[in-house]
Computed example of a mutant assay.
Amino acid sequence: MELRHLRYFIILAEELHFGRAAERLHIAQPPLSQQIRQLEVELGFQLFYRTKRKVQLTEAGQLFLGRCQDILQQLEQAIQLGQQAHRGEAGHLRVGFVGSAAYNVLPPILRAFRSQTPTVTLELQELTTDQQLRWLQEGRIDIGFVRPPVKGSTIHSTVIFQESLIVALPESHILTTQTHVATKSLFQESFILFPRSLAPGLYDPIISLCRQAGFSPQIAQEAIQMQTIVSLVAAEMGVAIVPASLQNLQRQGVVYKTLQEETPTVELALIWRVHPSPTVQRFLEIAGSNWQPDPVNQDCQQG
């Protein structure tokens, strides 16, 4: 039995007329009659009562019709799902991201992706850069938002966002009265930093900025999440130099200030494995052409 036999049967059951059914199928009437007889022989039961004046479904044919329609409907759905998966519009996508990405590129990209590929299930996992590199190689995520640099012959990457640095101060700090803060005025401060081992692409520009101002920062505390760093600043544990988009994270007790000097830029990059799936390719297309950064106030604000 072939699928075309089922289609012939369904069309004839809908028309109950061999001539009209043959016309819909774009075949001659005698081959259609022959195909239906062969199907009945293979099934072992009669599908139609035939007279010179009419064609009528048997009781067995009526029951068989319902199941055949279900089969062809499921087949159409399977074909559509396969086509969507081929276009990267169906399936499951596991996305890793550093916490700071949630305050710039991540929300608009996710909105665009969900709007254009609503049948793809997204699984999000907040991870440090080194964790994402490991998870990507292990196949535990499909794509990631990380702080460069990225090393590894099996990993591809592209920078999608660059931004300057600002300083986060406790609201009681004397420097909060200034419009812009000179980096050198922070030389006696205790700093809260992200560990270098987890994100050298963020740690190194901060250290470089301080050294250009004539000092090495005194590190009082390290934290692996940006939210934690800002919370420690609010607790007056120290100050922090952070990416400018972090001012989107408003936290009571924290004031963000721009720095007087031109700062190094810090980057965010997308990473993925070689030979990406169609869904990953679709995500990369949307990320590269359809996102716009959420607005960040030009003047840093108090949280």
Rank of each mutant, 00 (worst) to 15 (best):
Asp142Met: 00
Gly139Gln: 10
Ala223Cys: 02
Leu284Asn: 04
Leu175Val: 07
Val274Ala: 14
Thr179Asp: 08
Gly139Tyr: 12
Arg20Lys: 15
Ile241His: 11
Leu65Pro: 04
Gly253Asp: 12
Cys300Trp: 15
Ile166Pro: 02
Val150Asn: 06
His17Thr: 01
Gln178Ser: 12
Arg94Gly: 01
Ser115Asp: 09
Ala13Ile: 01
Arg67Ala: 12
Gly139Glu: 05
Ile79Ser: 13
Ile10Asn: 08
Pro118Leu: 01
Phe97Cys: 00
Arg251Gly: 01
Arg251Phe: 00
Arg7Phe: 11
Phe48Met: 05
Gly99Ala: 12
Gln292His: 15
Gln80Ala: 15
Ser172Asn: 02
Ile271Glu: 01
Gly61Leu: 14
Cys300Tyr: 13
Leu3Cys: 06
Leu32Tyr: 01
Ile160His: 13
Pro118Asp: 02
Gly288Arg: 11
Leu122His: 06
Val274Gly: 11
Gly88Lys: 15
Val266Ser: 02
Gln84Ile: 01
Val266Gly: 03
Asn248Val: 04
Glu189His: 13
Leu65Lys: 15
Leu209Cys: 14
Pro118Cys: 02
Glu59Met: 05
Tyr49Phe: 09
Ala223Tyr: 08
Leu16Trp: 06
Thr158Phe: 06
Glu189Ile: 13
Leu169Thr: 13
Ala101Thr: 00
Gly61Gln: 13
Arg37Pro: 06
Phe48Thr: 05
Leu3Gly: 04
Arg196His: 14
Val55Glu: 04
Met226Tyr: 05
Lys257Leu: 02
Leu193Thr: 03
Arg37His: 13
Lys151Glu: 15
Leu3Tyr: 02
Trp272Asn: 05
Phe191Gln: 08
Ile141Lys: 05
Gln292Gly: 06
Ser197Asn: 09
Pro293Asp: 10
Gln80Ser: 14
Ala78Leu: 14
Glu14Thr: 14
Gln131Trp: 04
Ile27Lys: 11
Ser157Met: 08
Gly288Ser: 14
